[in-house]
Amino acid sequence: MPAELEVREAKRTDIRTLIDLYTAAGLDTRGAHDEAVMRMNWDRMRTAAPGVRVFIFSLAGLPVGTYTLFILPLLAHNGAPEAIVEDVAVHPEAQGQGIGRRMMEHARELAREAGCYKLALSSNQKRVEAHAFYERLGFERHGFSFVVTP
């Protein structure tokens, strides 16, 4: 892992950086990201889920990765919260340098500190390489994931 890898919590002013990372990593291919819409979504997300945190990882001052962490309070599991990782993106030019590993270690540390009973993420079935990566990090396939367009 690169020694000079830095992490910080993203701010609303980082929207352009997030868009660039998502686009480079092919995270969201449903069309161009509109900065105004993304700012509106940022505000809505921060209001609806005040515990949500978005992180940006930089190498030599250049943003190379990001992920979003949700800590969800629950009633079951003795009230222990659940952590969910979403929107994981590492710039293709920075892949293979341990950045994704460090990002998931960071998420795991925060989940542990929050007393979460699990850290979960989902990955598209087609992303076989990503699945192998997560398994190397100790993630296990668990259950089934179902989605429906509302």
Results as ranks from 00 to 15, higher is better:
5 L>I: 03
134 Y>Q: 04
132 A>S: 13
150 P>I: 13
38 M>G: 04
67 Y>D: 07
10 A>T: 06
92 P>R: 15
113 E>N: 12
84 I>S: 05
69 L>H: 02
99 I>G: 05
69 L>Q: 06
81 P>K: 11
102 R>G: 13
92 P>G: 14
137 L>G: 01
11 K>T: 13
40 M>Q: 15
142 H>T: 14
59 L>R: 02
13 T>K: 13
62 L>P: 01
91 H>Y: 06
16 R>P: 00
52 V>Y: 05
33 H>R: 10
54 V>E: 01
66 T>C: 09
28 D>R: 11
147 V>L: 12
83 A>M: 07
16 R>Q: 09
72 L>C: 02
114 A>T: 01
4 E>C: 12
95 Q>T: 13
96 G>F: 06
99 I>V: 14
46 R>F: 05
102 R>M: 09
66 T>A: 07
73 P>V: 07
8 R>A: 10
101 R>G: 07
112 R>Y: 03
111 A>Y: 09
146 F>H: 08
97 Q>L: 15
94 A>P: 02
11 K>R: 15
59 L>S: 10
101 R>N: 04
90 V>W: 08
27 L>S: 02
8 R>W: 10
125 Q>V: 12
32 A>L: 13
6 E>Y: 06
80 A>I: 05
139 F>Q: 03
3 A>V: 12
27 L>K: 04
111 A>F: 02
105 E>L: 09
55 F>D: 01
132 A>W: 02
117 Y>M: 07
138 G>P: 10
22 Y>G: 04
93 E>F: 07
3 A>E: 13
33 H>Y: 10
6 E>W: 03
33 H>S: 12
27 L>G: 11
140 E>K: 14
53 R>V: 02
47 T>F: 11
97 Q>M: 15
150 P>H: 13
60 A>P: 03
1 M>E: 09
37 V>T: 14
84 I>T: 08
107 A>P: 10
2 P>T: 03
34 D>P: 03
8 R>Y: 04
88 V>Q: 02
18 L>P: 00
62 L>M: 14
49 A>L: 05
135 E>S: 13
91 H>C: 00
75 L>R: 11
40 M>S: 11
57 F>G: 09
130 A>N: 00
18 L>N: 00
97 Q>P: 01
109 E>K: 02
147 V>N: 03
71 I>N: 05
143 G>W: 03
129 E>T: 06
81 P>G: 11
115 G>H: 09
44 R>D: 13
82 E>V: 08
101 R>M: 07
129 E>N: 02
99 I>T: 01
1 M>K: 07
39 R>P: 04
146 F>L: 15
131 H>C: 11
99 I>Q: 06
51 G>Q: 13
8 R>E: 06
91 H>F: 03
83 A>F: 09
62 L>E: 15
85 V>P: 01
96 G>L: 04
101 R>Q: 08
13 T>L: 01
10 A>K: 09
45 M>A: 12
138 G>N: 06
12 R>I: 13
96 G>N: 06
5 L>V: 05
96 G>I: 08
86 E>G: 03
138 G>K: 12
119 L>W: 10
83 A>Q: 02
136 R>D: 11
9 E>Q: 14
114 A>H: 04
78 N>C: 12
139 F>V: 11
51 G>I: 00
31 G>Q: 04
113 E>Q: 15
6 E>H: 08
46 R>E: 05
97 Q>E: 14
118 K>A: 12
54 V>C: 07
61 G>S: 09
57 F>L: 12
89 A>C: 12
12 R>H: 10
